[in-house]
């Protein structure tokens, strides 16, 4: 049998994702790709492979999987309950997945998007230069029971690594840069925007996330008469009801609502991973500070591989140890970026 991952069961939002398809904005196709791009980098670091390999993105719920050959896997992003043939697995770690074994990934215990990476990457055919499903554009489809996904050749053999991943699963502060439409909002409204606590609404998906303000919504001087213009992931549209709507990876390419600002790309995973009910605050930062933060985040991504450590395990205690890792949470939440 060819090298493949069999899907026995899948949650409603499991899709193949990679870094997406840049270059098609002029044709109305947004980049798409993983909702939490940092999680892709973490998976690549754990498996010691290139960051452009495709993985499975699992929105809120995983599934049941089986490998046709011995494989390596890594689990990143929103922590989920996971086991192989009943033995609990540490999250943010790499593991061997023997041929025929059952990998079961349950609901997220925090955050929204979990990722299952395989050594060699998911090797479905590329469409317009990428493997990402872009459901809004009609590219690809959510996975379903019975699907078989080809997996690329894996040059690596090592597993049992763990990564102290940045905690971005519990909301908190998100940095925003001003754009050309920010002055459409009066200064006192911008000040109130920064003081407001927002709650991630139940309305949210890979296209965008609605943030419900504590208190009244925000109104621009321009009202709803602005021309449709180019929009980018991270843009914060203020829709008719005054609630901000943060555009995500799979957003449309133009929009006609005024934008109060844009979330920094490096803080976008924090918005993506805020589960409904999670609180967020939005703070404007000057462009220089935004660039510096983005640069630090890029450097941190580059050095992920050096921050990977071995899961310390005693063969006699392996099951207990792995579940201990899961319960204690290998997500330390002490990272700066």
């Amino acid at each position: 049998m060819t090298r493949a991952l069999i899907v026995h069961q899948a949650g409603p939002g499991v899709t193949v994702q990679d870094l997406g398809r840049p270059g098609y904005l002029a044709y109305g196709l947004s980049r798409g790709g993983a909702a939490d791009r940092l999680a892709l980098c973490e998976g690549a670091a754990l498996l010691g492979q290139a960051v452009d390999r495709a993985a499975l993105e699992m929105a809120g719920m995983g599934g049941t999987f089986e490998a046709t050959e011995d494989m390596r896997i890594a689990l990143t992003g929103a922590p989920m309950r996971a086991s192989i043939d009943g033995a609990a697995l540490a999250w943010n770690a790499s593991h061997p997945l023997p041929a025929g074994a059952r990998l079961v990934i349950g609901p997220a215990t925090a955050g929204v998007y979990g990722y299952l990476h395989v050594g060699g990457g998911i090797a479905t055919p590329e469409i317009l230069g990428a493997r990402s499903a872009h459901l809004a554009a009609g590219i690809g489809a959510a996975l379903a029971a019975g699907d078989t996904l080809p997996v690329g050749p894996d040059r690596g053999t090592d597993t049992g690594f763990v990564l102290d991943a940045e905690d971005r699963f519990t909301g908190g502060e998100v940095r925003v840069v001003a754009g050309y439409q920010t002055p459409m909002f009066p200064d006192d409204e911008l000040a109130r925007f920064e003081e407001t606590r927002f709650t991630r609404d139940a309305r949210g998906n890979r296209m965008g996330v609605r943030l419900a303000p504590d208190g009244r919504g925000f109104a621009s001087r321009a009202g709803l008469t602005v021309l449709s213009e180019a929009i980018v992931p991270g843009d914060i549209q203020v829709t008719g009801d005054g609630a901000p709507f943060v555009l995500m990876a799979e957003c449309q390419t133009t929009g006609g609502y005024p934008r109060i600002g844009a979330v920094l790309p490096c803080d976008l995973p924090r918005v993506a991973q805020a589960a409904p009910g999670t609180h967020l605050r939005l703070r404007f930062v000057p462009p220089e500070e935004a660039l510096a933060a983005e640069r630090r985040a890029a450097e941190a991504r580059e050095t992920l591989r050096r921050r990977v450590t071995r899961l310390v395990r005693d063969p006699r205690d392996i099951r207990d140890l792995l579940s201990y890792q899961l319960i204690s949470g290998v997500i330390a939440g002490t990272e700066e970026e």
């Binding site: 754009g179 439409q181 213009e229 991270g234 843009d235």
Partner: peptide, 9 residues
């Protein structure tokens, strides 16, 4: 004008 961190309009 500026759009986000990396866009010009």
């Amino acid at each position: 004008g500026r759009v986000g961190l990396d866009g010009l309009l």
